[in-house]
Nucleic acid binder design. Structure first.
Lengths: 343, 343
DNA sequence: CGACGTCTTGAAGAGTCTCAACCATGGTGG
DNA sequence: CCACCATGGTTGAGACTCTTCAAGACGTCG
């Protein structure tokens, strides 16, 4: 898609020849004879850059810049003055009003191209589009630096339903579950988080009170990032909004899958699924078999059932040689076969 | 919090006096004697603005700008050249390299302040923070204009699981459900949408194939917005990312609530809840009672149960004078009492 | 060693699903 | 105009899963 350039200039010769040169260079040009038309065209076409003379009838360049800056739709369009006014004071006034460049006439074509392209580069890099390949991690790291690291003991509650969210959390090392509590006290875990995960962003994102609880499952080290810093980064850094939009939508996807299982899968299948989930998130060894340590209550909360039922299922699985039990540790003998449990 | 200004200038007098003036004005200043130190300080302190001389030993101003632009952390910091080089060619070179302003020495303090403040204003407005009060609706409207409106018949499928997402959808008028299909064919509705709702954004947001299906419940009019336009708006417009982050997190919240109910509430309670949901989303009359038309299958999908069970529950509700039935229309007699169903 | 918390096992019962038959409605074609 | 069928909705009975309550086993820690 060609970049759109709006040229606002009262001198017919300069306007037409500039437009012609830019057309040749592959830009799509719009031209305006004076400020009023220029502002209209800017609003209508939302060009990618605006070149504007200062001395014009009807509405001068300063006025154009002022009006465009006032409107949020046009405020971020790069704005270059092209003018015969080469006095220092004029240039300062233009820049102080928020122009991005100030090109004095007469200028040659190369100067013009370079000025335009330089502003495009600039815009692209501040909006972050395109150049954020390895950038994301750097920005997230920066965000994490805004917070303070804190060791948190086993089974400590980090936040509870109804609290006002004040922080975003990032797990350096450890395990955290988020869960909801049913009227009668039964719990349902919606998510497990571990090293390298952010959590607690959902309530921050929609500005309401927490709708779930979070607690550690083992001793952990967690960074608390103040809400204000998170919000600033979320809205002003592409990399951050992209990351969290990804996290949010991934979260929805997981919940959708879990809901379908809750509705129609047998407890047997759901227990198997929960074991797999815990194994992939919390296990250290990665061969086909692996060992996990989790209380029956936590497992039951994950499955959405009574802990007795979990016990029975684990006993069944043990009989079928899918798992082994030593103490409260569960040793999965074959992830593969566990995955293939039907019903 | 005071704004941080980094001054890179080899002339001791100018550097110190500039720093002094800015200190007085309430800025926090850092000074560097030449380019190398300047780049280090910039990376270390991430100042809010950088003032930089051009002619310096060790590393000149152009070099500083080049290095800072290469690093994503510093690329978006406003950069002003302050220099004795007043030649047109020098100024052009500076601006073409991506400087934000070019102040020639000698300059007076007012010029300096104005230059700095102008760049702060500029930064603030491009990052869009603050000025987006009534803006959101306008930007969303603009986004909707990118798509084409289409009438869609009753019970038409809009997308299915596994499809490649190509559009964002917006309902002008109508009713749409999204649902997942269990292995054996049973369905579970995750969401109901109606006039004024966007849907289908979740899969676009995380760039994977659809994980659910969408179908109309009545004849509807729906705008299809191409993915490419949505992505552009999502990443480049504050208002749009804010809106969809809100939608995504609201969605998570709803699903969390629904999951808890699926896990621990009785079918009776869930049917009541589903009726309420349908009533609030699709009903036209708004008194305490209202009428809804929905098939038993759709209701069953919403509850996550068999349609026979729904029938039985509705019969119970009718006996208890909570609802009335005429054909397949359900007439809710008291939303209030339906809400208060326990267990 | 006993006390406590956690886990396991047992038996009874409630709740929900499945299968099947039946009813109401509305549209279709002879 | 009416018999016919298709569809969606309702009702019944039995089966099955899972929960609940209760008691016992295990392991850990003072």
């Amino acid at each position: 898609m060609n970049k759109k350039v709006l040229i606002i200039e009262d001198n017919d010769d300069i306007r037409e020849s500039t437009a012609e040169v830019l057309d040749l260079a592959g830009y799509e040009t719009f031209t305006a004879k004076h400020g009023k038309v220029g502002v209209d065209l800017a609003l209508k076409h939302l060009p990618d850059i605006i070149l504007c003379d200062i001395m014009m009838p009807e509405l001068d360049g300063y006025g154009v810049l002022y009006l465009l800056n006032k409107n949020p739709k046009t405020a971020s369009i790069p704005f270059i003055f092209i003018t015969a006014k080469s006095e220092r004071a004029d240039m300062r006034k233009g820049m102080e009003m928020g122009a991005d460049d100030y090109l004095t006439k007469p200028f040659d074509d190369v100067e013009l191209f370079k000025a335009i392209e330089s502003r495009f580069r600039k815009k692209q890099q501040t909006s972050g589009f395109g150049t954020n390949a390895g950038n994301t991690e750097a920005v997230l790291e920066e965000l994490r630096k805004k917070g303070r690291s804190k060791p948190i003991g086993n089974k400590q509650i980090i936040y509870v339903e109804g609290d006002e969210p004040t922080h975003l959390y990032f797990i350096i090392k450890g395990q955290v579950k988020t869960y909801k509590r049913f009227k009668d006290g039964r719990e349902l875990s919606s998510n497990l988080y571990h090293d390298g995960d952010f959590f607690g962003y959902e309530s921050l994102c929609n500005g309401e009170l927490y709708s779930d609880n979070a607690a550690t499952l083992i001793e952990s080290e967690i960074i608390q990032i103040p809400k204000i810093d998170f919000m600033e980064y979320l809205l002003n850094h592409q990399a951050v909004s992209k990351t969290f939009i990804g996290l949010l939508s991934g979260n929805i996807r997981d919940k959708g899958k879990q809901m379908l299982q809750l509705a129609y899968s047998s407890v047997r299948k759901r227990v198997a699924e929960a074991l797999l989930q815990v194994a992939t998130k919390f296990s250290n060894d990665t061969s086909d078999g692996c060992t996990i340590r989790i209380s029956r209550d936590d497992l039951a909360a994950l499955v959405g059932t009574a802990s007795e039922t979990v016990s029975r299922m684990l006993a069944d699985f043990k009989d079928e040689k899918l798992i082994d039990k030593t103490g409260n540790a569960i040793n999965i003998l074959s992830l593969e076969r566990l995955k293939n449990i039907k019903q």
